[in-house]
Computed example of a mutant assay.
Amino acid sequence: MVAAAGWALTTERVAKKPEGLDLAGLLDVVESEMKDAPDRLQWAMNHCLAQIGIDHSEYRARVIGIGERLEVLKDYPTSPGCTSPFAPVWIGEMVSRQQGA
């Protein structure tokens, strides 16, 4: 629970105040630990992964590659009209929305 809360706070910072964060280092941790993390922690790490890909285009290809290799939440049931939490799909949808705005 504590680790998931930490990742949630980090995700907020990735989106709003990324200065000083080691995004490449965060991706290293996600890549090595997310696949085997407990569900709640995995969800929080996945959110951070996706947020980095959405907000930081210089990392987008790496983030999508991590998401595709790990396949975390790939088969998560998603209601029609909702965006999948699978990072590559989520990133694609959110970037598309930003570019259309």
Rank of each mutant, 00 (worst) to 15 (best):
E33T: 13
V14P: 02
T83C: 12
M45F: 02
P88S: 05
G81N: 10
G25V: 06
T78N: 07
G92Y: 00
T78C: 06
A44K: 10
L27W: 05
W7M: 06
M1L: 09
Q99R: 13
E33Q: 12
R60F: 00
P88T: 12
W7G: 08
R69I: 06
G67P: 04
T78P: 04
S79L: 12
T78R: 08
V2P: 14
E71W: 00
D39H: 15
Q42A: 15
G6T: 10
L27P: 01
E71K: 15
A87I: 03
Q51T: 13
V95L: 14
A37S: 14
G81P: 10
W43E: 14
L27V: 05
P77N: 02
E58C: 02
K16G: 09
E12V: 03
D36G: 13
F86N: 03
A3E: 14
V63F: 06
D28A: 09
S84L: 03
K74S: 11
E58P: 04
L70E: 05
D55V: 09
R62S: 04
A50E: 04
L41P: 10
L49S: 09
A87F: 01
K74P: 06
W90R: 14
K17I: 00
A5L: 15
E19I: 00
L27Q: 07
V63H: 02
L70S: 09
A50W: 00
P85C: 13
W43N: 11
L26G: 07
I52E: 01
P77D: 01
V14C: 02
R97A: 14
T11P: 04
D36I: 04
E68N: 11
H47W: 11
T78D: 00
E12T: 09
G100E: 14
V14S: 01
R60A: 08
E19C: 03
G67L: 04
G100Q: 15
A3R: 15
A44L: 08
D55R: 12
G81Y: 01
P85S: 05
I52Y: 01
W7R: 12
P88Y: 01
V29D: 07
S32E: 11
V29N: 09
Q98V: 00
E58S: 14
D75G: 05
T10N: 05
G53Q: 07
K35L: 13
T11L: 05
E31Y: 01
T78I: 06
L23G: 02
V30H: 03
